[in-house]
Design a protein around this nucleic acid. Structure first.
Lengths: 227, 227
DNA sequence: CGTGCAATTGAAAGTACTCAAGCCACGTGG
DNA sequence: CCACGTGGCTTGAGTACTTTCAATTGCACG
């Protein structure tokens, strides 16, 4: 289950009643405080000391890097259940900003890591989370390194649709700018690619933030690189 | 310490005598068989079942994905000490190929994971490894998403030089094709970028595989995006 | 001293970017 | 209630950069 799915609140990776790590997780949750963010508000900035790590209760966030000249690259989007703000260093690698109004749990980093280390189950779970995230990051590396604009946008829509797992009317929680920054394109190129996908009958757009896949087969062909 | 450093045998992340996880690691090493590969030989292919994971004893390897049309994206390079071929799924995500003649240790995946799970220290270590790898993958995402060709090549050389940690005569273990596939460029663009870096006096090249940084400051400017 | 492969260079073509307008939905104020 | 402004989205024209295709050079090896 990917972050985009959780963005709609469809599932919870951490803190749900399903996993076997419940008791352990409640130990961690006991150490959490809760913070509310409005859309656009930033939670931390690249380079900050990182005494806390975070978990989304509701809403959606993005993590990104900013280059000297202001260009941005969003590393990932997160939704309900997702844990973020934790790395092998003690400072933040990215800037985190709310895409929508959010509620996040705040864990003291040291406590969090200590509790995780003490539970084989949690360790395993956290390791899986990072393996999956690495997997996703590498998929994006392939996309950024070797796919054209149309292919990137098609791939992105396909993933959003799959993650939302209902065939009708998928919602984009993020702006065109965020999509562009995620896909390594400009706003304009994202728009043009969407227009092209409409022109080819692969998708339709009910509004700027709502789309429907009309022809999954064609969309997949395009995502796979068909001209 | 990054993979490129280990490529020269400068350090060992796993299996060195330095870490505190020695006894645990020896338990794992006891389960290992050893395999020799010649340069160009492939160890596994994307989609293969993954009953084993691997660790380089000597030599250098690359892990890459191939798209339908033959384009490649190399996910990472690995050197002595590096562990690879392991993920959250039970099939391989990449193809692994020897860049030079190699010796690798082969671990049965299940045994490996069981032993790791049984040791807090090893779990911690493996988690750190994956966090670091995710960190590196995201750095590359920024590079691929937002940097131009010259900037990518400059960044790459700087990293190679830093990892080899001797200011003179750095060695490129990989071919131009591998560099191109790593940087999301074509061979030709890599060459032209190298030529441009020479022209600007940032580096010199003793041969196609050996370079020296003449002006680190300028190289860093270029890597940071100076025109 | 050829042969063959890797690396480099050149010219033409293509793709995404920049800059510049328009468009559209929505909220505000007259 | 409607005109107006704002911000996000879309479209267009020209430019810059990377790729593609095509030689050419350089180097290791027989």
């Amino acid at each position: 289950m990917s972050a985009l799915a959780r963005m709609n609140g469809d599932a919870e990776e951490w803190g749900s009643a399903e996993t076997g790590a419940d008791k352990e997780i409640s130990k961690i949750a006991a150490n959490a405080t809760v913070k509310r963010l409005s859309s656009g508000e930033t939670l931390y900035v690249e380079g900050d000391r990182a005494p806390y790590c975070f978990q989304i209760v509701s809403g959606a966030m993005k993590e990104y890097n900013t280059l000297e000249d202001g260009r941005r690259q969003v590393a990932d989007f997160y939704g309900p259940g997702d844990l973020f703000g934790i790395s092998e260093t003690d400072h933040q690698l990215h800037t985190a900003e709310a895409i929508t109004d959010c509620v996040v749990r705040v864990y003291p980093r040291d406590t969090f890591l200590r509790i995780v280390a003490g539970s084989q189950e949690l360790s395993q779970h956290l390791l899986d989370t990072f393996m999956t995230r690495l997997h996703r990051a590498r998929d994006r590396i392939v996309m950024l390194g070797r796919m054209g604009a149309l292919q990137r946008v098609a791939t992105f829509l396909r993933r959003v649709a799959r993650d939302q797992s209902h065939s009708e009317a998928c919602t984009l929680v993020m702006s065109r700018q965020d999509m562009a920054d995620h896909l390594g394109l400009t706003i304009e190129t994202v728009c043009r690619s969407l227009t092209e996908l409409k022109k080819r009958g692969a998708v339709s757009m009910e509004s700027a933030r709502v789309f429907t896949i009309l022809d999954m087969h064609r969309l997949e062909e395009i995502a796979a690189g068909a001209e």
